[in-house]
Amino acid sequence: MSLLRTNGLVAGYGDFQALFGVSLSIDEGETIAIIGSNGAGKTTLLKTISGLLRPRHPTDIEFEGTSIGSLEPEQIVARGIAMVPEGRRPFPSLNVEDNLRMGGYCRRAGPWTLERVYQLFPILGERRFAQSQALSGGQQQMLAIGRALMANPRLLLCDELSLGLAPIVIRDIYAAMPGIRAEGTTMLIVEQDINRAFAASDRVYCMQKGKITLEGRPSGLTRDQIKLAYFGI
């Protein structure tokens, strides 16, 4: 049984429809990457899974075999889906440690604690009492990941981890991924950098204009297939 499944997911903002029947499934322990250009609906997909947006039909999203499409975000995180939001969004008036503690607000049991997050990202431990706004972009991204891990999710959604960061910083952040997977956490990452996405994932979905245009294992896809799925040309 897949951990997460979307069945022809339709969603959007008010009258503006952004997702036109997205179907995907993720097994426990897998890392899935979703690639696609700006406006393809990747962020909308993650927002809908995490509950910030409502799908057209509540049954469009199933987690652990039950539909979660009608739940509020705070109920969804309690079931084990945590998101690293686009743009990182640290709480500006909280220091690093309080940001992490907010991640653990729902008190799910699991392997991740403040100490474990500080092991994964030692710089956060060094700067635990710094205001989150004083961190560099890369450190803020680590904070955002650590904050989501504090919810001890079964499924971790990561939206554009590399957005606006220098390549060397991106490398550091992706270096943490194996440590997260080692805890058995399933991951769904949205990434514009195709090489990063392929290197980090077991399976890739490509989106274009609110639909899935390609699905497969990184090793089994050709450049031409990807180009067609990504740009439609």
């Binding site: 509020e72 709480f91 607000y105």
Partner: peptide
């Protein structure tokens, strides 16, 4: 307190606070 932290987080960014379980 946890409640106070949730107050401040919600004041900063209520959507993101909801993502971590704040009602």
């Amino acid at each position: 307190t946890t409640l106070g932290r949730a107050f401040r987080a919600t004041a900063d960014d209520s959507d993101t606070a909801r993502l971590y379980g704040v009602n």
